[in-house]
Amino acid sequence: MTRTHRAVVTAMLVFLLFIGVGGCWSAQELNNRAFVNTVLIDMTEDGQTELTVGIPLPNRMIPGEAGGTGQPQGDPFSFVTRRAENLSQALNLIQVDLPRNLTFGQTRIIVIGRRQAEQGLDKVVEFVFRQPSFRLSASLFITPGDVKEITKAPMVFERILSDILRKYVNNHYTLDTTIKDYKLALYQGGDILIPLLNFGELPGVAQEDPKKNRWMGSGGAAIFSGGKMSKIKLNPSEQQTALWISSQLKNTTVTIASPTDDKEMSFFIEGIKTGIEPVVQGGQVSFRIQSNAKAFVETSLSHIDLKDPMVLQQLEEILNKQVEEQFISVLNKTRQARSDAFLMSQYLDWRYPKFWHTMQDQWKNYYAKELPIEVDVDIKLNRTGGVYRSVVHETNR
């Protein structure tokens, strides 16, 4: 390399270093922004749109910034609510009352109230897609009643509400349904599953602070048909099965009755892999759902002998049959709601586009009443744990 080449390379490296330390990339300072991380949307009894934004408060998040020393006092976030004829007007009413400019670049959670969900989410999706900074990966949740009930949820393990809901999704406790997923589902008829939240009070808890006896958890899943929430929903156990069908579940626990004495046996299921495949033969379409997994005995109150290979095979058959029945039960609920919630039409469109176009108009009725769906679950029992017989029965001998 010549001296001239070295000089050019050095100059380019120095230039790149200066770009990296150039500071802000826009004319708006961070101190002038309010980063919305949670959006709550509902419809009032008189038909107005209610918008609530959850905003972290930087002056309460950094120790020593509020009150001089020690931990900051008060909640590290705030909710601001306004009502108007539409979302844009409600957003404008919120903005004029805030000293900082709202930005949706950090929004990860959108929670919809029951009234709005029953009317459909078209207005919500339209509003979100018009915001350039809005993340299409933001997760959707539905509440069974007033959406502002979520603001009463206690912050115990996390400081901010959105962090709790994101961990529900990341840990596969609830379905991961995003704004983008819902938008894509609208093109196929508006059928999809969206996780439900549940709220309540914990009995026997001290009443000095009303927030301390509140709790929030997964309430199952709402079934959407034609872009609107159906009255039929999945309970929390059925939502676990829906996670399994949609390949969003990594591991779970299944409990069965022992074939020898009907005592309880629990199995830890892991390595779950599920596939949905359309089959077109003779001008007819059917679907095959296949799922494979591994299992090991987690607890057993039965005296069953787990050293016997025939016994292990019998347990596998019972496990497979029980999970298959759970699959069919959940699928039947979506059929009752007339909702292709697992988006089988998309699989058919991808695999057999010409065939899909011939039956696109009649698909909803066909799915609800006629579509043959074969479920095949194959769980292999790999480990029996550290003992072959129940510890309870061994110690009671």
Rank of each mutant, 00 (worst) to 15 (best):
residue 218 S to R: 05
residue 243 L to F: 10
residue 62 I to A: 15
residue 211 K to V: 08
residue 379 I to S: 02
residue 77 F to G: 11
residue 36 V to S: 12
residue 103 T to Y: 06
residue 384 T to A: 05
residue 17 L to V: 15
residue 214 R to P: 02
residue 107 T to F: 05
residue 326 Q to E: 02
residue 6 R to Q: 05
residue 333 K to T: 01
residue 303 H to Y: 09
residue 113 G to C: 01
residue 154 P to C: 11
residue 92 N to G: 13
residue 185 A to V: 11
residue 60 R to V: 09
residue 335 R to L: 04
residue 332 N to D: 14
residue 135 R to F: 06
residue 1 M to F: 07
residue 127 F to T: 04
residue 148 K to L: 15
residue 125 V to R: 00
residue 123 K to V: 05
residue 140 L to Y: 10
residue 235 N to G: 11
residue 106 Q to S: 07
residue 223 I to R: 06
residue 166 R to F: 11
residue 132 P to Q: 08
residue 291 S to G: 10
residue 338 R to N: 05
residue 189 G to Q: 14
residue 303 H to S: 10
residue 230 S to G: 08
residue 351 R to M: 07
residue 140 L to W: 10
residue 350 W to G: 04
residue 319 L to G: 00
residue 258 S to K: 06
residue 359 M to H: 01
residue 5 H to P: 00
residue 45 E to T: 14
residue 6 R to H: 01
residue 388 Y to F: 08
residue 177 T to E: 09
residue 381 L to H: 03
residue 40 L to E: 11
residue 27 A to R: 11
residue 177 T to L: 08
residue 305 D to V: 00
residue 17 L to T: 14
residue 55 I to S: 06
residue 98 L to S: 09
residue 125 V to E: 02
residue 160 I to H: 06
residue 270 E to H: 04
residue 245 I to D: 06
residue 313 Q to G: 09
residue 318 I to G: 00
residue 240 Q to A: 12
residue 301 L to A: 13
residue 167 K to Q: 15
residue 97 D to F: 03
residue 262 D to Q: 13
residue 273 K to H: 10
residue 204 G to D: 09
residue 340 D to L: 03
residue 7 A to P: 00
residue 331 L to F: 04
residue 230 S to M: 07
residue 373 I to Y: 07
residue 266 S to A: 12
residue 187 Y to A: 15
residue 331 L to P: 03
residue 50 E to Y: 11
residue 344 M to T: 12
residue 72 P to M: 13
residue 125 V to L: 13
